[in-house]
């Protein structure tokens, strides 16, 4: 089965920003988001770049890694939410323990995905966060 293909009837169009220090993770998430009907707004490799890119591009959705150099994901979420309280951010991390999820959601993230991410799971989260369900 092609892992990148997901059947996603009814998903609204959306522009996304992918934030991850891993090139592989950025590429993989981008492929999945394009496959579910998203349009790439941009990408960033750390939290500081993420805030700059968010303010410049104003994407509909942000997919944010947690562990990154310079500025980590949770701090970047707080920075973005401080500037735009309506920002829709999904945390994506290899570490999915309760304490980590709690910190992410308390920082203002709308949802939490653990790696490896799957297209159908991403489509479901996109639909939920954009308020279509």
């Amino acid at each position: 089965m092609d892992r990148m293909k997901a059947e996603t009837p009814g998903l609204p169009s959306f522009r996304f920003l992918v934030v991850d220090d891993s090139e592989f993770a950025r590429r993989n998430m981008k492929k999945i988001l394009l496959s579910v009907g998203g349009e790439e707004a941009g990408s960033a490799a750390n939290g500081r770049e993420a805030i700059e890119q968010y303010m410049k591009l104003k994407p509909d959705l942000v997919f944010m890694d947690i562990t990154m150099p310079e500025m980590e994901g949770v701090e970047a979420v707080q920075g973005i939410i401080h500037r735009d309280a309506s920002a829709k951010i999904v945390m994506v991390s290899s570490n999915g323990y309760q304490e980590m999820i709690k910190a992410a959601l308390e920082s203002g993230a709308k949802h939490f995905l653990t790696k490896p991410v799957e297209p159908l799971q991403v489509a479901s989260v996109v639909s939920f966060v954009l308020g279509e369900v």
Binding site: S22, F24, S94, N95, T114, K115
Partner: peptide, 16 residues
């Protein structure tokens, strides 16, 4: 980078 990310996912799930 791909192999590092794989290692990160394997250990991340374990500490979860």
């Amino acid at each position: 980078d791909t192999l590092s990310e794989l290692a990160s996912m394997m250990t991340g799930r374990a500490i979860t």
